[in-house]
Nucleic acid binder design. Structure first.
Lengths: 133, 133
DNA sequence: CGGAATCCATGCCGATACTG
DNA sequence: CAGTATCGGCATGGATTCCG
């Protein structure tokens, strides 16, 4: 069933994310997904409570944040610390593994942000040569 | 409109991806998105024609690949080289900027893949403590 | 081969309401 | 505060068709 018959690539890199069946694809989507990336980025700066996170990750709904945190917790990237007080207090923080992932992710995010000037320029050029379409 | 009233973060990092309005969020989604990440990863290994890419990125439909490539080209990350031969031949390759982005992205992908053992273990533990849910 | 265009099912995701 | 449950719109994206 594992359909990776041959590598036509020049270099024999250890990839198989490209295969639909590979489980790493799922995890990668949790990490790089719309809310996953921003959540990990936020948690890279420290520990946060649920609603703190919600405010930091602008635009995320309760449902999506909850869902995202569950996925990341399940993948062992985020640790959930619940205190049985009243009112309840729950803190989220990165696990060591999560921190390593977030580090690379944040590097990517910062790089992209730093080059937005180039990106915007490229877009302007692209849109112009095609006459607004 | 720009709702970033105050930073509660310990460190004053230059983020604003967290803001819904920030244009870098869009580009980040092209890059980290489901097909964007895999496409950039594939192109990091070399230049490919449309259907070569399609075979490499397992599971992508023509529409999504076309759409993804357009977005990346517009953002200045991918260069499209069309030769007016018959049958037509079109090659896609990373721009210098795209290469830098892909480099970081591939680093992230490879890291995640290398730690899938930990991830799978964490999942097993998580699922067990919650009784299959 | 390299696409664009159309149709349409799925499921993502936001809004709301409710629980502990 | 920290979530879960439910509903529904609409965007995502797959399959198919057609064109240069």
């Amino acid at each position: 069933m594992t359909t990776m018959p041959e590598r036509t690539a020049e270099q024999d890199l250890p990839y198989d994310v490209f295969s639909r069946a590979c489980p790493s694809r799922g995890t990668l989507e949790h990490v790089t997904g719309r809310w996953g990336a921003l959540t990990l980025g936020a948690l890279f700066e420290g520990s946060f409570r649920f609603n703190e996170l919600r405010r930091r990750v602008d635009g995320v709904s309760e449902k999506m944040l909850s869902q995202t945190l569950h996925a990341l917790e399940r993948d062992g990237l985020v640790h959930r610390e619940a205190q049985p007080t009243n009112p309840p207090r729950v803190d989220y923080e990165l696990t060591p593994l999560g921190r390593e992932v977030a580090e690379r992710l944040v590097g990517l995010i910062e790089f992209v942000e730093g080059r937005m000037g180039d990106v915007l320029g490229a877009r302007a050029r692209y849109d112009e040569t095609r006459g607004g379409r």
